[in-house]
Each structure stands twice: as C-alpha cells, then as structure tokens.
Simulated scan of single mutants.
Amino acid sequence: MSKSESETDLSPSEMIDQRIKELGDWRGEMLARLREVIRQADPEMVEEWKWRGVPVWYHDGMVCTGETYKSAVKMTFAKGAALDDPSGLFNSSLDGNTRRAIDFHEGDEIDEEALKALVRAAVTLNAARARR
C-alpha cells in the first residue's frame, strides 16, 4: 500500500489480498489457500479486516480468523470447542472453553475436505444460534 493510500480506502477483501502479497512467502501462499477453502466451503462467507490486520470470516456470526505469525498461519474458530473434529484438525488453543485453532506451518498439507466440513459445521452452528 502506498503511503498516500489509507487502509480505509480499501475493502476488507482488498486488505486481505494486500496482506497475502505483502507476506510474499509460504505464509501468504498458505493464507491464500485457506481463504480459497473457506470460500469453497461457503460462498456466502463475508470477509472482514479486524484488530489492525487480521482477516476474519463471518456467516451468521464469526466463523474463523486467519492470523499470520513468523512460523505459523493460525486459523482460529470462534466456537471451535463446540464443533466435532473427527479428522483431528485442531492442534492449538485446545485448553479453552470456546475457541479452537489449527496452526499451519511451512510445508504442511491442508486436508481440504476435512477443513471444508469444519467450516460448514461452524456456519451451521452459527445459523442454529442465530435462529434462537
């Protein structure tokens, strides 16, 4: 982003695009791939940009975030503790009562079908809670 262009001039999706380009390494590639899997799982997903630089995906409430760190891309599910994870994708933030996360490291493969199922389960949970 040029210094004359502020983040408020960009849509959340454009800011996510920009973050992926700025990373310029495996983390950007991983975030882009995770984003694509999320969109395939739920084409109605809404992208937001929160907390000074975290991509967040919503459908009837927060579904997940895509945080980038030096050694990992962390996909945190807002209500992950309430989700079944038959494929054992969750590998981080396992002690909390609400959230669960998946840390992806350089060279990790994505089990796309299992991840799509987890995203869809999160959306279904949000929808059920929204109807109450």
Results as ranks from 00 to 15, higher is better:
84 D>A: 15
119 V>C: 09
88 G>S: 05
75 M>H: 02
21 K>Q: 08
81 A>D: 08
70 K>H: 14
16 I>E: 07
51 W>K: 00
20 I>M: 09
56 V>W: 09
7 E>T: 12
86 P>V: 04
22 E>A: 13
9 D>R: 13
61 G>Y: 10
41 A>F: 05
95 D>A: 14
81 A>L: 05
10 L>P: 02
28 G>A: 14
71 S>W: 01
103 D>I: 02
11 S>C: 04
97 N>R: 15
45 M>V: 15
120 R>M: 07
123 V>R: 08
128 A>R: 15
24 G>Y: 00
25 D>N: 14
69 Y>M: 09
89 L>A: 03
115 L>E: 04
132 R>W: 01
72 A>P: 06
22 E>F: 11
39 R>E: 13
39 R>S: 14
30 M>G: 07
64 C>I: 00
88 G>D: 08
40 Q>K: 14
2 S>R: 15
103 D>W: 10
15 M>L: 15
29 E>I: 08
21 K>P: 04
6 S>F: 06
22 E>P: 04
93 S>A: 09
83 L>N: 03
85 D>S: 08
38 I>Q: 07
76 T>R: 12
111 D>P: 03
28 G>I: 07
51 W>P: 03
64 C>K: 02
19 R>P: 06
109 E>I: 09
40 Q>D: 13
74 K>W: 05
27 R>I: 13
48 E>Q: 03
132 R>D: 14
108 D>M: 11
68 T>Q: 10
131 R>D: 11
3 K>T: 08
95 D>Q: 07
111 D>V: 02
91 N>W: 08
57 W>A: 01
127 A>W: 05
3 K>Q: 07
71 S>Y: 09
21 K>C: 05
77 F>H: 03
30 M>F: 01
7 E>G: 06
33 R>I: 03
65 T>K: 02
17 D>R: 12
24 G>M: 10
100 R>W: 04
54 V>H: 01
69 Y>I: 00
97 N>P: 12
67 E>P: 03
